[in-house]
Every structure is written in C-alpha cells, then in structure tokens.
Nucleic acid binder design. Structure first.
Lengths: 332, 332
DNA sequence: TTGTATGCGTTATCAA
DNA sequence: TTGATAACGCATACAA
C-alpha cells in the first residue's frame, strides 16, 4: 500500500503538499498539483482513513445497535435515522445483536474507545454500570427502551399508557378474559406493557390471573407455540394481548389452525404496528409507534450530543396511536 | 479524554508499562500493575481504538453492504455471516443502502482507505471500474449478485437454471401464458432470471410476448401495483413468475383482491423463498436459495482473502432448490 | 506556494 | 522488570 510519503517522493514534493492536493482546497500551484495527481494515480494511492481519523479525533460513523434485524419494527425507524444522518454527513452502520448481549457490550466499548462518534441503541440489556459509564462521557441515545433511575438520553413512547389503552379497547368490546403474551421481563418495556395490562384490568374491575400470562421470545414462532400451549392448558380466555406484533401474528396462526374464530371467539391485539400486521388475515389491532419520527428524533438528539450542543429534552416521549382492525372488531 | 500518557504520569511509570498492563500478557510486577490499574480506574481511561488500529493495520471489522435491509431475504444470510465472523473474531457491521448506490460507493472507498478489513456486498450497482479496483487490491466478495467479465470473488446460485426450472414447472402444470414480474434490469441477476424465463418458453415451444413482462421495484407494493396494471391491460395470462418473492406476494394480493382464484385461474411463482412465503395464503411456490450456507461461504471466502490464504474457488455457485407449494398446485 | 517539524495515541523493539 | 524511542500515516502551524 502506497502512503503519502511514497507519493511525495515520486512527485518530488513534500508530504504537506500531497496532503493539500488530496484535500483539494489547499493553495497549490496547478503545475505541482498535476505532478501530485499523476503520482497518486500511478501508485494507486488511497489516504489512510484511520490515520486521518486519529488526527481529527472523529470518524463521522455512528452505530445503531438493533436487537434483531429481522424484526421489521426497526426498518422504518432506520429510515428516519438514515435520512437524518445523511443530511448531517454522518454514516450509519448497523450492529445486529441477534439478541446476544455480548455484541451490545462490544460496541459500547468501541464507543468508549472512540472507534465511532456515537451510538443509538435499541437494546439496553447489558450491565447498567457499563451503560451509565458510556452515556456519561460519550454520545449515546437509548431508543424504544429505557432504564429506571438512570439519566441517559432516550426516546420512547409511554408503554404503560399504550398497553392500558389497547386493553381497555378489548374490554370495551366485551372481552373479560384477556391472555397476555409478553417477552423477557429483563426488558423494562415489556414490564411496562404488562403494567399497563394489569392497570387496565384493575380499573375495569377484572381480576389478574397469572395463568393467563405467557412468556415468549418476541417472534412469530414463539407466539404461535405459547398460544397453542395456552389453548392446551384448558384455561379459558376470550382475547389475547401480545406485547409485540410478531407474537400476535403467531397467536393468530395458532388460533386459525385450531379453528377458533377471530375476533368472535378470541380477539387478538398486538403492539408496534409492523408492516405485516395490516396485511395478514385478519388485520391486526395494534399500537402504532411513530417509527420514522422516532428515528429522526433519536438521530438529531445524538448529533446534538456529538456536537456538544444543548439538548432541550433528554428524555423524549413520542406519541402512540391505537389502531383498530378486524382482529378485535368484526364490525369495522 | 485521558490518554495512555496521563495514566503513565499518574501511576509514575512509562507509557510502555501502561501498554503492557492494558494488554494483560506483559511482564509486569504485581506492584506496578496495581498502581497502573488504579490510575486507569481513576482517570476512567479507555485505549484509543483508532491509534491501535493504525498501529496494527487492521480493524477486525468487516462491512456487509445490503441493498435494502427490510428485504427479509438477507436476514438468514446475515445469520450465516455473523456466526462465521464470530468464530473468527471478526465484527460485522451492516451498511443499508436502501437502494442508493452512493452508499455502496462510500463504503467501497472506506475499504480502500483501510477503514475496514473487508466487505461482502450484496449489491454491485456501482461503477464497475470502482468495483474492479477495490477487488483488485482489497478483500471484497460479491454475493448473490455478479458482474460479467470481471474476475471478482463471488458466490451466487445459477439464476438462469433456477428460473428455467420454475417456469418449466408452471408449464408442466398446464400454464401456457406466463407473465413475468422483474426488477431493474441493471442488476444482472434479474437479467439472468429473465433469460431463464425466455429459455423455458423457447424450449417448450411457447412464444415470448413483451406485453407479459412488467418491471417493478423489488417489493410487495410494486408487485401489487404492476399486477393490477397487468390485469387492467386486458392481456391474458394464466400464471405469474415473479423474479422475487416480495413481488410475488404483491401479485397474490392483487389477484385475491380481484377475486381471481390461485392457482386455478392464475398460478403464482416467486424466487428466493423468504420466510413470509410459506406463511401467506396460499403458500408460495418459489426457488430456495441456501441462504445460511451462502452467508457462511461468503464470510469464509472473505476471511481467506483477508488472511491472504489461497482460495480454492473464486466463484462459488451454490445449489438452489425448487419448492412447490399451493400457489402453483392445487393438489399438493 | 511550498517545506519542516510536531503531534494524534498507540505498540513494539531495543537497551538498561 | 522497566523505560526511551521509533514507527503507524496523516494534518497543520509555522517558517521560508
């Protein structure tokens, strides 16, 4: 690999001059510029990005940590992030955890080692100590996820309120036995949705029954399996609130397979409003998150942190919306 | 930000010693090691990755360029890549082009500037000159995509043969008027699938009719729209071969909406076997690519390139498989 | 307009 | 076991 020194030698100039030509804006006479350019071509020279970044103390790269890239929930958010990044000359790289926390930890460390300028994480499943430490000294935004009692810049919807709202809707439709599919309780967001569920039951004078709660992995397959297991358990339920659309879609599949009519015998509600939810049969009632906007806001927040500008709100709460479709209402 | 120098100063040792304790394996007396460790804690020191990488001339990071991350076709491939990378202590970062070639170009440049150790690209939609130049001097693998007359390490299935096979299947099922949904012809892979389609017609003594070819973007929406437009055109067809499952799923939606029975009035076949294809109604006949294996092979190839080891085959052709489901056969 | 020289934060070689 | 010092490849302040 040719370096700036080789180019300088071949062109018969100093490395400073080469540097100026490469940058473009420098004051260089056309004649020497030509010599240098020719040498660059001849040697097939490419400036070393690491050296340049070390000098500049910034990379213009930012990393997005995604729990699972195959969850379509993140795709629209990514678009918001990408477009905002592009407007600010930052480059987005996605780190797919496929649900391994070791990966989150690795990139948090990369951030602290200045390998990238900032991180937006959609996970928060790593030692809180590490997260706090990273957020304290480096540009880090937690999105659609958060932690209690730690002041880290974040953006999320109000999961408790949203879950309560969708359960209230099921109850208003005449359902009194709502099963709940949720995921790993170490994510606070699932805890919140569970809290919204219990709050709704309580406010409507219904009893909480532990037998109606099932823990899944947040994907179609697991939602399907847990619903079957619920059906086999013999516990009666007339509706399912899944804490994620993927789980809800799995539930619908299981119900259809068993010949249970939706929503009459069993209504289904999800959470997130992923693309597939409006396409399946029956279309899924769910909570819509303003995904694109969340992406934009998260990225703008991160850019402010990187630039050291003042941040108006360190913890943004985005607006959600109840989307009612046929999986919960036959007349719609 | 504290540097190694600050730590050395505070601990009262040289930077060499600090470097040794940070690395861990060095020969350092327990006493000084303790002093250094304490200084590191006190200053909250993190070694600078860029400096280290500049020194080592490698980053252990590799970038995967994906045309569109919301295309589920790539997710299983990514798993293969990720797991192979992990076994080799490499770290995967995904660059989502969302179909903008400028992004592909940017990261190809990053590769040439040694910002990353290697790239696997699922696109090849940038100036061929640039691609050739990058592949010539740097570790680069093109996957599920390729270019004519350029010797770049690659892995792909035989798209012509696969397309021919699936069209033969439609014809064998009694269909004689196959419409074809394809995408941007600047991707050679769509050209290949079109070639397979025409070859199949020819070999079965059927005429090629330009009116039956429709160009889409490779997604559900566009497949849906082009199918509607085809239906409105009045041209008769009894089956659709889409060059991608997403387009095929859009086609199914359009047909169902118009009350056309699948497969009797119109059969549908896709390409890729994405997850959704087995879940929709009716399940989609398609070509399965060995996605996970492609990911593993691509990554192994890249690692060989990075390590400078010999590569047995520079152009791997992976095995495909025809998957027949109800969208093309009512009795199945 | 051009060149010299220093520093960015490491690692590693060589002496001590 | 430790320290001084030379790279790694580039950018830039300053001098010429």
């Amino acid at each position: 690999m040719a370096t700036i020194k080789d180019v300088a030698e071949l062109a018969g100039v100093s490395i400073a001059t080469v540097s100026r030509v490469v940058k473009g804006n420098g004051n260089v006479s056309p004649k020497t510029a030509a010599k240098v350019t020719s040498a660059i071509k001849q040697l097939n020279y490419h400036p070393n990005a690491l050296a340049r970044q070390l000098k500049h103390q910034c990379t213009n790269n930012i990393i997005i940590i995604i729990p699972d890239i195959s969850n379509t929930f993140f795709h629209e958010i990514l678009h918001g992030i990408e477009e905002t990044a592009e407007r600010n000359d930052m480059h987005i790289l996605i780190a797919d955890m496929h649900n391994k926390t070791s990966i989150e930890e690795y990139y948090l460390r990369a951030l602290m080692q200045k390998e990238v300028d900032g991180i937006i994480s959609f996970s928060a499943n790593v030692a809180q100590q590490l997260l706090k430490q990273a957020a304290n000294d480096f540009p880090l935004v937690i999105a659609c996820q958060y932690l209690d009692n730690i002041d880290i810049p974040s953006i999320t919807i109000d999961n408790v309120a949203a879950a309560k709202e969708i359960c209230n809707h099921l109850i208003a439709s005449g359902k009194k036995n709502i099963a709940h599919l949720t995921a790993l309780p170490n994510f606070l967001l699932y805890q919140d949705r569970l809290d919204g569920y219990t709050a709704s039951l309580r406010e409507n004078g219904l009893d909480f029954r532990a037998g109606l709660i099932r823990y899944c992995s947040p994907n179609i397959k697991s939602g399907y399996e847990q619903t079957l297991s619920l059906l086999d358990s013999g516990i009666y339920f007339d509706s399912i609130f899944a804490a994620g659309d993927t789980m809800a879609i799995g539930a619908i599949r299981a119900l259809k397979e068993r010949g249970i009519s939706i929503p009459d015998e069993c209504a289904v509600a999800g959470f997130d409003d992923i693309e597939m939810s409006s396409l399946i049969d029956p279309p899924l009632t769910t909570i819509r998150q303003p995904k694109y906007q969340i992406g934009c806001d998260a990225m703008n927040m991160l850019i402010s942190l990187i630039r050291g500008s003042h941040i108006a709100k360190r913890n943004i709460v985005a607006e959600h919306q109840l989307v009612i479709r046929q999986s919960s209402c036959s007349v719609n």
